[in-house]
Design a protein around this nucleic acid. Sequence first.
DNA 1: CTTGACCTTCACATTAATGGAAAGGTTTAG
DNA 2: CTAAACCTTTCCATTAATGTGAAGGTCAAG
Lengths: 124, 124
Amino acid sequence: MKIGDLAAKTGVAPRLLRYYEEVGILHPFRSGNGYRTYGEAAVDRVLQIRELLDAGFTTEMIRQVLPCLGDPRPSTCTAEVDLDVVRRQLGNVERRIDVLQRNRDAIKTYLRAWEEGTGVTSDA
Amino acid sequence: MKIGDLAAKTGVAPRLLRYYEEVGILHPFRSGNGYRTYGEAAVDRVLQIRELLDAGFTTEMIRQVLPCLGDPRPSTCTAEVDLDVVRRQLGNVERRIDVLQRNRDAIKTYLRAWEEGTGVTSDA
DNA sequence: CTTGACCTTCACATTAATGGAAAGGTTTAG
DNA sequence: CTAAACCTTTCCATTAATGTGAAGGTCAAG
């Protein structure tokens, strides 16, 4: 699959697919003419990258944890996974979840107050 | 409290406190000489801002939901809260939590596999 | 009054993620 | 063969969040 095909299947611009390769989170092969070649698995990988980026991860964090995420590691992945880094990222993720949950609850409480008619002192 | 005091109490550089004001998520008073003046509540507000930024929020998102987060709204807050925007952000937060939880679980599973000695096919 | 430690605004630099154009090679359709 | 539609790399632009430095005002201590 060439870059345009992958872009079509994932909705992610070729420009970004090249960027993801540059920062080391996507590893296409090269065919004789120099064109990037992707396997079917790349579709899911790209979608997962998008999901993580949209959730506020940086490509650096993604690079550090992607090998853990059930990705079909190509044999080129020579155990370059630093478990301590992964553990740190796990703590990171858990802290984020915590912050997000607390704020989600606060927002929900706020909205419920409004929906129950009481509203909030509108200090207008 | 002047900007340097707030910086000392929160560990956030004065430059950033000015920036937060510029993007509308922090609203100090001005004393006669033009100096920014912050109340005690600003400390918590800044810490909450940092927490949200660290969790991957943008200042724009923070600006939209901060009024909902139990902040002591100054009387200058004339109900400029768009409930639909808040609801959208709530959905946003919930999606993020979902992504984070799924990935946290994947990472934990991965780590557990390693810690149980089995490891992962190291394709080295 | 002078000095040092604040404060102000303004402006430029940087990193990450992204968009875009330029210049040129490849492939496919006609 | 040629033209359209791909692909390549390189470089420049933008936005967000942040760092930094200049030029100047204010204030408290000596």
